[in-house]
Amino acid sequence: MTGLLDDLLGGLALGAVYALVALGFVVIFKASGVLSFAHGSLLLFGGYLIAVLHDDLGFAGALAVAVLATALLAGALDRLLLQRGDPGPGAAHVQTIVTIGVDIVLLTELSRRIGGDLLPLGDPWGDAVTGLGPVTVADSRLAAIVVSAVSIASVFALFRYTRWGLSLRAAGEDVEAAALMGVRLSRVRTLAWCLAGGLAALAAVFLAAFPAPGLERTTGQIALKAFPAAVLGGMASPVGALAGSLLIGLTEALVAGHQSELSLLGEGFADVAPYAVMVLVLLVRPTGLFGTRGAARV
């Protein structure tokens, strides 16, 4: 029984971290129609900054700088590269592939700097654990859940109560109508990219914290698991992304917890279980759990 509770808590923490990344995907997708393949390397960039700076600035200072810098980098990527292209009908596809190019360059440079090292981020939780009734949980996991919950709630509040959130939702509904109503699309877009970048840097902290050994050059690849989470939720729905992330996190933790019973599926199946879940869901609902089938007008 405690095994199950352990898995559930672990899954919740994992899902909360995926949600930070997946929410970024969704915000970017709503604002620009682009699927950001550069997100993994943005996340790694944030993590790397923290790893380099935490000795001098302390963890909190390094985190603040990293979140800001990653947000700026993401915003600059959108402003300087993506928005300069031809804004024709297929622009979103083209820009999606541009993000792949950016990812290749950024990831190559970061992996060159990180090399084979495991970089500690100097987070305050270390490997401490807390007893919660029958189960013991790593502090870093509790922190992941709390921080993610707070950040996600703030993002939802941003959507709901600010002008920017309203503009973003309007642009997600109908780009032309929003532009005619005076929404500055390019500014909304760039802010969306900044927000997503900041969230990715935040996620990097928890992906590299205990029980993970530290920041590696492959940490960015974990961000790819937020893709299934976002697609499961329907890509354009923040709530869906949250639900998808929790589903993915729980699946991964439960499969890992029951590895011995699932030996038929091979060792390390937990790592790919999210993708299996995604394929199954897409078979039944091609637009995701919370996606809507848009009516096409000719």
């Binding site: 699927l35 299934p228 976002a230 890509m235 993708y275 995604m278 897409l282």
Partner: peptide
């Protein structure tokens, strides 16, 4: 389109 891109990641 893009959804298929992610689905094929799987």
């Amino acid at each position: 389109g893009i959804y298929l891109g992610v689905a094929t990641l799987a």
